[in-house]
């Protein structure tokens, strides 16, 4: 697949007439906001590519006109200046619910698509667009790649696994667990040998997870390690890596604990969820039960900054008991 094409398609910019400045906001956050198409104001949804020529936005755009007339609008209740509707997940889509309070409570309790209403037998347009958008975002997250600037700003150098193409990465999990010969050499050259804690990052199945969360979780984690007085080695980034790639790193650098930040398989709720895998002395042949994970690190799950702060105490516990995963639970008693 052509990743660039996908990238540009997903960058849906939604803009209100006469408010071109909003464009900046939408593209900055990277998340696509859908405008209230029921609002009395005449809005339309603009989709298009801005990745290369953001200025040229009046041509070649798809325009979806507001299909509901202002006087039929039911959304008079939304008086906020900013007419962006709250996220679908926090809003009732059923037109005239029997028990709005109860439904509202359920809807806010889960990010699943409940209480979305329907139009005849079909989902409503907004729900349907949102579904396709989320699906698109998930696909993108898998095929996308991580910006070099981000890694540079965090002082992470990049090494690769035995995988070449993303298609191969998906078909051959085994190759994603092994480092290339060059990678092994680079790691040996650049990294501190036998650190207490070795930190690695990898895109895994979601480059978005790294883009959105790595900086916050990583810096916050370093701060918590500093505060606990736990020293750490030279961190780096593995492109197209799998969780067990930490075993090879363990063989080379022999750290006590490896912490691997890796993108989770994206779903329709979030395509940018990050996991932190931790393992005490991972080596070739480490069994999965000895790994542990803190998952769901993203803006809609555990906030990345808080996850980082918490991970320090998990590492402290692993060092104290010299075990991780099921072995740690056993030792803790």
């Amino acid at each position: 697949m052509n990743t660039e094409l996908i990238e540009s398609i997903t960058k849906l910019i939604i803009e209100k007439i006469g408010k071109p400045s909003e464009e900046k906001l939408a593209s900055e956050s990277g998340m696509v906001k859908l405008w209230d198409h029921l609002s009395p104001e005449n809005q339309y949804i603009v989709t298009g590519s801005d990745s290369h020529d953001g200025a040229q936005n009046s041509n070649g755009l798809v325009k979806l006109w507001d299909h509901v007339k202002a006087d039929e609008s039911k959304s008079a209740g939304y008086k906020e200046e900013n007419t962006i509707l709250p996220e679908l997940e926090t809003r009732i889509g059923v037109s005239s619910p029997c028990h709005p309070e109860a439904l509202q409570e359920w809807v806010t309790k889960t990010p699943a698509r409940i209480g979305i209403g329907r139009a005849g037998l079909r989902p409503k347009i907004e729900t349907w667009l949102r579904f396709r958008l989320d699906h698109g975002a998930a696909v993108d997250a898998v095929y996308g790649s991580v910006q070099q600037e981000l890694l540079k700003s965090l002082n992470l150098f990049t090494v690769r696994t035995m995988v070449d193409q993303k298609e191969e990465y998906i078909r051959r999990p085994d190759l994603g667990r092994k480092l290339s010969e060059e990678a092994k050499r680079t790691i040996r050259e650049k990294c501190q040998y036998k650190p207490k804690v070795q930190i690695i990052a990898s895109d895994g199945l979601s480059s978005q997870a790294i883009e959105k969360n790595l900086e916050d979780v990583y810096l916050s984690f370093l701060q918590s390690l500093d505060q606990l007085g736990i020293e750490y080695g030279t961190s780096f980034y593995i492109e197209k890596g799998r969780v067990a790639s930490m075993d090879e790193v363990g063989e080379i650098l022999e750290p006590e604990v490896v912490v691997l930040f890796i993108g989770e398989r994206p779903g329709l709720v979030s395509s940018e969820s990050l996991s932190a895998y931790l393992c005490y002395k991972p080596r070739k042949g480490t069994i999965e039960a000895d790994r542990m994970v803190i998952s769901n690190i993203h803006s809609g799950g555990i906030p990345p900054v808080e996850a980082g702060a918490y991970l320090g105490s998990v590492v402290q516990k692993i060092l104290k008991y010299q075990a991780s995963g099921v072995s740690l639970v056993r030792k803790e008693g």
Partner: peptide, 14 residues
Amino acid sequence: QDDLAKVLGQTLQA
């Protein structure tokens, strides 16, 4: 209100 006490507490201590 939000789940941020650990990071803010650590930051203040740092």
